[in-house]
Design a protein around this nucleic acid. Sequence first.
DNA 1: AATTATACCATACAAATGTATGGTATAATC
DNA 2: GATTATACCATACATTTGTATGGTATAATT
Lengths: 206, 206
Amino acid sequence: MQKQLTKIQQEILEFLVESKSKGIMPTLAEIANQFGYKNRSTVQQHLQAIEKKGYIKRNSKLSRGIELLLEDKFFIPQPILGEVAAGNPLTIYPDAIDTVELPTIAHMPRDSFLLRVKGDSLKDAYIFTGDIVITNPNIEVENGKIVVAILDDAAVVKRFYKKSDSIELHSENPEYEPIIIKKSYENFKLVGTVVGVYRTMNKKVG
Amino acid sequence: MQKQLTKIQQEILEFLVESKSKGIMPTLAEIANQFGYKNRSTVQQHLQAIEKKGYIKRNSKLSRGIELLLEDKFFIPQPILGEVAAGNPLTIYPDAIDTVELPTIAHMPRDSFLLRVKGDSLKDAYIFTGDIVITNPNIEVENGKIVVAILDDAAVVKRFYKKSDSIELHSENPEYEPIIIKKSYENFKLVGTVVGVYRTMNKKVG
DNA sequence: AATTATACCATACAAATGTATGGTATAATC
DNA sequence: GATTATACCATACATTTGTATGGTATAATT
């Protein structure tokens, strides 16, 4: 069991976790700057205290060498941009509707975003309500891949098939009919390709 | 479209991706050391070339300040240590049996490892054959969590319940009976807690 | 009353770090 | 034949970085 951190130590640790989620650990100077300290020694001493209590490990003389221990106990909120329907289309929201607490284990590349799935039309592709799909708008959409698309101002996640004069969005669940979009139809936009599915085990599922 | 990298540039870029997956970008000196260069300027010039071709961004004067662009095109092979049965116990392998290409989006904490699931006893917890479970041995096992355990030299992934004089491993699939282990039984060992599930979308599933 | 933990500051220093400049050599391209 | 890209080297330098030491002040604990 870890010892209790003081409020300031907790704030510094949170800053470390947040930094790590952005991909780069801060230097002492950057931490000092963040908290308005005029001196790196102040930070140094806080870090020593945090290390002594077992939350981090400082790698001697290595720049940006702070390691987070107990990584999976640190959670950072990530915005969820909307809910995406695996069954019938759902409305997509302009701003983040919710946040999901991803462990620092799940790094977000800058150009990807998260969507939470609602509905069960992709259940035969093993994607379920509550799953977070990692969506990348910069990956070329290919036949047979699972994509996120906006159709009439609603978002869907479906398997993509390009035909000669139309685009078909298939569900894997036979209860749902494929959506067929004629090429002339304008209220259709591909958002991105689903590159992965991530599910945390923090909350009991099922 | 990106310009073609030379072989050396490609190797350096791969080293950067690998480093990032380990959580910390290298300094010029560390790269030089890795490739046997006697001088940081050599690295500096390679990085300039890689940046010019659009693969990375160097943040001026910032230590370890290399950013990876096109992150989702970078995949790093991670060893899968074995197969884990969600149904009946499977043999566990001493060494890596395979590798999976995880995108850099899925960060591996140093102390976690990957196991590939085989079997469908956890299908009601939405874990299926082929899924990669991220397992952390340093997280306290709690009631109701999904854990990996070794039972008679076979590995299983099940939901964990501690009773007064026994441990029960439950499947979510009613077709499988719970495994009940008496406290006196010795050929049982908890391996770790499943902290996440990752599934790539590269191969067609279903 | 004495001790300890916390929360800052200033000053100092060796090593690490990114950067710059100039040089050599080879292969490919124009 | 001239130019350009590639692939190294050496030397140099201003900053950055982690670390060390010593100091002040407050609150909590013994």
